[in-house]
Amino acid sequence: YSHPVISRNRVISQLLLTEPAPLAANQDDSTNDGSLRTLLTLCDLLNRELLVLIGWAKQIPGFSGLSLVDQMSLLQSGWMEALLVGVAWRSQGAAGEELVFAGNLRLDEAQCRAAGLADLYEALRHLTAKYKAMNLSPEEAVTLKAVALANSDADQVDCPDSLQRFQDGLHEALQEYEASRREQHRTGRLLMSLPLLRQTADRAVQAFLRLHRRRCVPLHKLLLEMLDAK
């Protein structure tokens, strides 16, 4: 999300500053089965991205003010949405119709289909096309990622007031940023993209659970724990 102009908004500046550097995929070489190799590489990447995401969440202004129970609930509900904002962002500029999970892990439709991820491919291309058409800025992308986590509608909320303040802080930051650009409709448009993001994340979670159960694809402990929370 590198950007030459430092946002004057404190929250967005912090989000830009703490946005983790993109991870590279470690190519799995434990099998000769190409589609299984793709899946294992992807799952390893996801597991490491999750670890980074948890560290990142702690740096979102307001997140550490939530109770530990609520921090856990938000991450358990919203982790896939937050990760997919990153995938959609990276895939915007991709040549052809690839999904860019990492700089060295770009999957086209045929590769996704072979790996059992045809459904996910379609949903993620739809999301990517939407953000590309909106010409999302780096400030918007990092804020949307934080908003997705804050708005993840966890089942049980320990301290609703703190959560509301956390959400309001991010919402205000986005509104202030868009007002400074004289873009009065952008905040609403971005928030209106959240249902598609939720739907895409649900499909992604189902796809990985299905692969784990039906094809017995082994998953790392953290990824499995987070999928189980779904």
């Binding site: 560290g55 991450l75 724990e225």
Partner: peptide, 20 residues
């Protein structure tokens, strides 16, 4: 909490190594 122990450990910034 027991079921989600890795997440719990990571959020608590545990200094003990986390088995991922």
């Amino acid at each position: 909490k027991e079921k989600h122990k890795i997440l719990h450990q990571l959020l608590q910034n545990s200094t003990s190594p986390v088995d991922l």
